Simulated scan of single mutants.
Amino acid sequence: MPLHWFNPPVTVSTGKPGVRYGCNNVEGAARELMEWNNHGLMWNHAVRACMSCLAGEMTPEDVRKAFIAAAEEEGKLLSDDH
């Protein structure tokens, strides 16, 4: 199954100190979300968006937006200049 790509990548901090992740596809976003400890409202929306995209009901860009919102809620969103 091909990956569901989006662009530009979304850069987030990971659970490992100093390690960042530039996510550019739905499958990567889903994997990263599963690593997070807190599961807030935006996290829930992002996970559902990933599943919906994989089912052909949403676009990768929809997932990108939901992933950004979840990363902001979690305090994990990084700008490209970090």
Rank of each mutant, 00 (worst) to 15 (best):
M58I: 02
C53E: 12
C53I: 06
A30K: 03
G40V: 02
C23T: 13
A29Q: 01
S52H: 10
C53R: 05
E35S: 08
G28L: 08
E35N: 13
E35L: 13
N25P: 01
S52T: 02
A29S: 06
L33G: 00
E57T: 11
N38F: 05
V47D: 10
N25D: 13
E35G: 03
M58C: 10
N24F: 08
M58A: 14
A30W: 00
L33T: 00
W36S: 02
E27I: 03
G56I: 07
V26F: 04
E57R: 15
L54Q: 09
M42G: 01
M51Q: 15
N37L: 04
R31M: 04
M58V: 06
S52Y: 08
S52C: 06
M34H: 11
H39I: 05
N38T: 07
T59M: 07
N37Q: 03
G56S: 11
L33A: 01
N44L: 13
T59D: 03
A29P: 00
R48P: 01
V47T: 05
C50K: 03
W43Y: 14
T59N: 07
M51F: 12
M51W: 10
N38Y: 05
C23V: 14
R31G: 00
C50T: 12
L54S: 07
N37M: 07
N24M: 08
M58G: 05
A49H: 07
E32R: 10
L54M: 12
H39W: 09
R31L: 11
M58D: 07
A30R: 01
N25H: 12
G28E: 09
N37F: 04
R31E: 03
N44Q: 14
N37D: 07
W43E: 02
C23M: 09
E32W: 13
E27N: 03
M42P: 00
R31V: 03
N37Y: 04
V47G: 05
N25R: 10
A30Q: 02
N37P: 00
G40P: 04
M58R: 15
M58Q: 15
H39G: 03
G56C: 10
G40S: 05
